[in-house]
Structures are given as structure tokens and as C-alpha cells.
Design a protein around this nucleic acid. Sequence first.
DNA 1: AAATATTAGTTGTTTTTGTAACTAACAAGG
DNA 2: CCTTGTTAGTTACAAAAACAACTAATATTT
Lengths: 146, 146
Amino acid sequence: MAKNDEFDLQNFLPYLLNQAAEQSSLEFQRIYKDRYGLLRTEWRVLFHLGMYGDMTAKEIGARALTHKTKISRAVSRLAQRRYITRTRSENDRRAELLALTQAGRGVYQELRGIAEDYDARLAQQFSRGEGALLRMMLRRLAGIED
Amino acid sequence: MAKNDEFDLQNFLPYLLNQAAEQSSLEFQRIYKDRYGLLRTEWRVLFHLGMYGDMTAKEIGARALTHKTKISRAVSRLAQRRYITRTRSENDRRAELLALTQAGRGVYQELRGIAEDYDARLAQQFSRGEGALLRMMLRRLAGIED
DNA sequence: AAATATTAGTTGTTTTTGTAACTAACAAGG
DNA sequence: CCTTGTTAGTTACAAAAACAACTAATATTT
């Protein structure tokens, strides 16, 4: 026979990845949602700015593989809450450079600490080597260039 | 210092898992969506019935960790397309037993073949051992009992 | 330098999801 | 039995996502 018979839904990578992603982000989601009133794309934008420095909406979208309308709305809400400022770019007046405010940086710092702890807790389930391998494989699947 | 400095968004497991899940299911999604007009929960319901046999909406929800309203709507649409039948359970007349129709089974078979190929193609990126380890770790993260 | 095409970002409209409240059937406990 | 509680599944309404069409600025072509 051409195909082995061991194929199972529970082992189908797209399904399995999705389940793992959903399960393992449940608690973190509750924190940024309930405690900080942020949406998923919002904390992501926050993290991009906090971690990689000021950039435009387009750059964030490219890095996070997120559609521009999602970014646009996240940016809009973050600006409303005074977590970020938007200043028109000098060289290209269509684009605007996004930057964290003091308040935004504060929230970022807090959430980042929580994320680090959370990540460490998840990774505890594996040995150091396994964890590193896992991340490596996930980066490959995600199409992140090393 | 208390924390190592290597923490990066690209390595944060919930984020990374999500990116990997999204990226690696893009093509498959296009197939079941564009070619079969199915929604994510719909193909999942289809697969549950095809792979594990007839069961109730509740059972599917429990296995797939999916909320009952999502299942309810998926079941409703699948029934409308005559991919599944719903028959009230004898012993508990609240529940209904779901089963694939001939047509449903056909679609399932096709999609299952595609899924198998797709999975194999994804797994090609890793060695046999790595792939097995990956699935094992994902199952653990997803909270699937072995 | 017009005319045309492309790009950054926004807005409007439609789908899909999440949440809560609901119906109908069952399960106990008194 | 008959009140109270629980469960399977649906429905209604609010929140969020997807998709398309739009504006304004910049590139490109002729």
C-alpha cells in the first residue's frame, strides 16, 4: 500500500499546531485581555515597538505577518489609549512612525515580564535541548528566517 | 540579573506556535475553504466523524476543545449540505447522533488524502525522529493525553 | 509634466466568532 | 410526583475578523 495507516487527526500538524497554540496561550490571553484590556494584535504591536524600536505600521505587519487593516485598527486603539504616538514620516508622508509613550513602555515592560515567566513555565515541560529544538522547528514552520 | 536577555518575541512560545500554526495551515485552508467551501470547524467535525465514527456534537466538542455554539453551527451547515445526518438519540432525546452521509464520506475521504499528503510534506522538513518529537511536544502543549 | 501605477493607511460592509440567554430533556432530592 | 438543578443544543446579540473599496502620497512611464 502507498500510505501508512497511522494518520490521525490528533497528529495532523496543522490541527495539532493549532491546538497547541490555542491551549498554550489561553492563560496569557486572559492576562492581556482581562487585565490590560488589549486585543491580540494590540499586544503584538506593543511588543514589536517595545522590542525592536520605533517603526511603521507596514513594518509591523510585515514582521508579524498580519494584514494591514488589523494593524491599522490596533494602532488606532493603542493611540487612543495613549500607549503609542504616531508621527508622519518626513521622507514619506503616507507612512507614520509609531513609538511607545511612557505609559505604553510601562505596559510593555510589565507584559514582557509576564510573558517571560509564562514562556519559562511552558518550556519547563521539556528539557533544554528539546525546548531549543522545538523552537527551531516552529520557526522553520513559521517561515522565520534564521 | 535575574532574567536572561535572550527573550525575543520570535521565540515566545504562544506567539511562535501561533505563527507556525497559521503559516503551516495556509495552503490546506485554501483547499478546504475555496475548493470545498468548508469552514475550519466544519472540516474538523467532518474529520471527527470520518475518523472516529458517529458521535454527538458534545463529544466532538470535547475532543476538539471547541465551544458548543461553534459545533452547533458547523453541524447545522454540514447537515444543510447533506454531508451529515442527525438522528435523535434513543436514550437521551436532547442529544443527536451525527453520522456522515455518502456524500459526506466522499468529501472526507478526499480531504483526508489531501491532509495526509500535506502533512507528509510539512514533516519532510524534519528528520523522522525530530518529527516524532515535535508531535509529542505539541500534544503535550495541547493537553492531549497520550 | 501628465498620465498611470503603486504604496501606506483607513473606512465600510459582510462573515465569523464569542457570550449570554434560552428551550427542551433529563436527574436527583425531598 | 414535583421542585430544583444540570445538560444538549439553539438562538440572539455584541465583538472581532476578513475582504473590498477608498484616499492620499509617491513612483514610474511616456
